[in-house]
C-alpha cells in the first residue's frame, strides 16, 4: 500500500467519522427574483450587514464567511471587503446613514464623489444581509467529576440553533432591487457522555453560510439553462 493510498484512506475515514459525528441539520434555501441579473468580467459585489440601528444582529463572522464562500472556486465572484467599501464611501454607508431602500439610491448617487467611488471599484451589486443565529431550545443534563483516580462525565445534553438569514440584492446598474435569497437552517447538536463526552455538533451558521452563498452566486450569475 502506497503512502498516497494510505493518506486518502485516512482522509476518507476522518470524513466519514466527521459525518457520523455531526448533529442533525435541516435546511431550506430559496430565492425570490424581481429582475434580471448577471455579472460581467471585472464587476464586483459587496456584502454588507443591515444596520444594527435597525435592530439587525448579523454577525461579522457570518459576513466574512459569505464573502469567502462567494469569492472561492471556479465560479468565484469578485468581492470587495465590506470595511474597505464602507470606508471608501464614508459616511454614506454607516449604520446610521446607509440607505434602507432602493428608492434612496438615486439621491445617494448624487452626493459628491459617491458615484465615482462606486465606479472606481466597479461595484455592480450590493448584498444586504439580515438575520442571525440563535439558540432556540436545549435540555438534558451532564455532570463531570474529577477524583484522585481520574475523572469522567456522565449524562446527555442537547441544544438547537436556528440560523435564519436574508440577503437582499441591489443592482447598482439600474438602482433597483434584483431580489433576495433566504436561508433557514435548523441544527440540533447532541452531547452524550459516558466517561468521555462525544460531541455531535450541528453547525447551523456554517451551513446557512454555505447554502446562502451558493444560492446567491447562482442568483447573481443567472446563467441560462442549456
Amino acid at each position: 500500500m502506497t503512502d498516497a493510498t494510505l493518506r486518502s484512506g485516512k482522509t476518507l475515514t476522518a470524513g466519514l467519522l466527521a459525518l457520523a459525528l455531526s448533529g442533525c441539520i435541516t435546511s431550506r434555501v430559496e430565492d425570490a427574483r424581481e429582475g434580471m441579473t448577471g455579472i460581467e468580467e471585472g464587476e464586483s459585489i459587496v456584502i454588507l450587514a443591515k444596520s444594527y440601528h435597525l435592530g439587525n444582529e448579523t454577525e461579522d463572522k457570518y459576513i466574512n464567511c459569505v464573502e469567502d464562500a462567494l469569492s472561492r472556486g471556479s465560479k468565484g465572484l469578485r468581492v470587495i471587503p465590506h470595511r474597505q467599501f464602507v470606508d471608501s464611501l464614508f459616511p454614506w454607508f454607516e449604520p446610521r446613514t446607509a440607505p434602507a431602500e432602493t428608492k434612496g439610491l438615486p439621491k445617494l448617487m448624487e452626493r459628491p464623489g459617491v458615484a465615482e467611488r462606486i465606479a472606481e471599484q466597479n461595484v455592480r451589486y450590493i448584498v444586504w444581509l439580515d438575520g442571525d443565529t440563535d439558540r432556540v431550545a436545549g435540555g438534558g443534563s451532564l455532570s463531570c467529576a474529577v477524583g484522585p483516580g481520574g475523572g469522567g462525565c456522565f449524562g446527555f445534553a442537547w441544544w438547537q440553533n436556528d440560523a435564519d438569514y436574508n440577503a437582499a440584492v441591489w443592482d447598482l446598474k439600474g438602482l433597483e432591487s434584483a431580489g433576495s435569497v433566504t436561508a433557514d437552517v435548523s441544527g440540533t447538536s447532541f452531547l452524550p457522555a459516558l466517561v468521555v463526552p462525544i460531541p455531535l455538533i450541528a453547525r447551523a451558521r456554517a451551513s446557512a453560510c454555505k447554502g446562502l452563498a451558493d444560492q446567491l452566486r447562482d442568483f447573481i450569475i443567472d446563467e441560462p439553462e442549456v
Binding site: 464611501l89 464614508f90 459616511p91 452626493r111 459628491p112
Partner: peptide, 8 residues
C-alpha cells in the same frame, strides 16, 4: 481617525 468624508 475617520476616513475622508465624501462631502463638500
Amino acid at each position: 481617525t475617520i476616513p475622508t468624508p465624501l462631502i463638500d
